[in-house]
């Protein structure tokens, strides 16, 4: 499966998100995409393997204390 370039990825993502944007706007997305993707990838640190998310769920809300 050939790896896709940013242009193809952004095209697909905009379609998946059902967004129609102007050519210049899309050009900006294509330019920015690689850095955005690497910023996101950089968060998958090995030391986080067993770390819980910072947002937790409270089932009692909306019930009388």
């Amino acid at each position: 499966m050939p790896t896709l370039d940013s242009e193809a990825i952004v095209t697909g993502l905009l379609a998946a998100a059902q967004l129609t944007v102007s050519p210049q706007e899309k050009a900006t997305f294509v330019k920015d995409y690689p850095l955005m993707r690497s910023n996101a990838d950089a968060l998958y640190l090995a030391e986080l393997e067993f770390v819980e998310p910072a947002v937790t769920f409270d089932p009692t809300v909306y019930y009388p204390a």
Partner: peptide, 19 residues
């Protein structure tokens, strides 16, 4: 307009997995 196949190829690339 865009098939699910194309969209899937994109999100697989984003997610870094190659099934």
């Amino acid at each position: 307009m865009h098939s699910n196949e194309e969209k899937l190829a994109v999100v697989l690339e984003m997610s870094g997995i190659t099934p």
